[in-house]
């Protein structure tokens, strides 16, 4: 009896100890990033590496925003992620709802085709897409990033899965009452889809904010560059300026990390619902 109890106590220590250890290892790089970003220039280039700044300073952040003009890239990222999120929500919601609830010829075959497209890596399309954007004059404009992201197979799929749970009777009853299809969509369906709207909005915003390869290709001009692309090129020039680059990393990561912390319930739910892709 007492052996069982003490063995359970030991397992409890083991499980929680392992969790604390794993969490510490996971968060340590982020905590260190924050700490080093407040150090004075050159302070971090010492051995042993300092863990906390001796005289905390905001100088790195000031230099980022004044000398290096990072504010512009931050605004670019915010604008792009915001626009893509708002517009693609509209496109994906309408299509996802129609695939789930409205009958039309060829619906199921079309949907299967869309799902099939999910296996193709995005990079396959990149070379022709770049040529298309170039001939449309959209290279080095915000539209070069926005237009291809206006709808996504994954978004349509996620909305459809959720919209299937809306009872047909509800929509049918509204039709009998004489409501038009648009009215049904805006005043009955959308309110019911609210949870998935939240989920998809966060997923889209984060994906767009963190996206690297396509913005790197289509926005080569400095003025339009997003925060991650700007940080990548800064970090190639300022290899030795650890403190400055850590501040840059904080500025890049903090918006999405805060967004995730504020809305994590919706995010994690969506992940389990979709079961695929981020």
């Amino acid at each position: 009896m007492s052996w069982r109890q003490s063995s359970q106590g030991a397992s409890r220590w083991l499980v929680n100890g392992a969790l604390i250890g794993a969490t510490a290892l996971t968060l340590a790089p982020l905590a260190w990033m924050l700490s080093v970003s407040f150090m004075t220039r050159g302070e971090a280039a010492a051995f042993p590496p300092p863990l906390v700044p001796t005289r905390p300073t905001l100088a790195n952040y000031v230099e980022l925003f004044t000398v290096l003009g990072v504010g512009r890239h931050l605004v670019n990222s915010l604008l792009l992620a915001g626009a893509v999120t708002a517009l693609s929500l509209l496109f994906n919601l309408a299509a996802g709802y129609a695939f789930a609830k409205l009958r039309f010829a060829g619906r199921d075959a079309l949907f299967r085709g869309l799902l099939g497209a999910l296996v193709i890596p995005l990079q396959v399309a990149m070379m022709p897409l770049f040529l298309m954007m170039k001939s449309l004059g959209l290279v080095n404009t915000y539209w070069g990033v926005i237009v291809p992201s206006l709808a996504s197979v994954f978004g349509v799929f996620l909305v459809r899965q959720y919209a299937r749970s809306i009872p047909d009777e509800l929509i049918e009853a509204a039709r009998i009452d004489g409501a038009g299809e648009w009215r049904i969509f805006f005043s009955i369906v959308l309110p019911l889809l609210r949870p998935i709207i939240a989920t998809l909005a966060i997923l889209t915003f984060l994906t767009c904010w963190n996206d690297f390869m396509w913005p790197l290709i289509v926005l080569s001009g400095d003025a339009q560059q997003t925060m991650p692309v700007a940080l990548a090129s800064l970090s190639r020039e300022h290899v030795q300026d650890n403190e400055l680059m850590m501040a840059g990393a904080v500025v890049t990561v903090l918006p999405v990390l805060l967004l995730f912390l504020a809305l994590q319930r919706h995010y994690l739910q969506g992940l389990m619902l979709g079961g695929v892709k981020g």
Binding site: L19, A22, T23, T26, L27, P29, L30, W32, M33, V36, A44, L206, W209, N210, F212, M227, P228, V229, L231, A232, S235, N242, M245, M246, G248, A249, T252, V253, V256, L257, L259, F260, L261, Q264, Y267, L268, G278
Partner: peptide, 24 residues
């Protein structure tokens, strides 16, 4: 708490955290 903390790196930007690791 543990779930959120362990998940945090997923939402971070690859470029930014790669900069951290380069220094780590």
């Amino acid at each position: 708490f543990f779930r959120t903390a362990l998940f945090a790196p997923v939402v971070t930007t690859v470029v930014a955290v790669a900069v951290i690791w380069r220094y780590l």
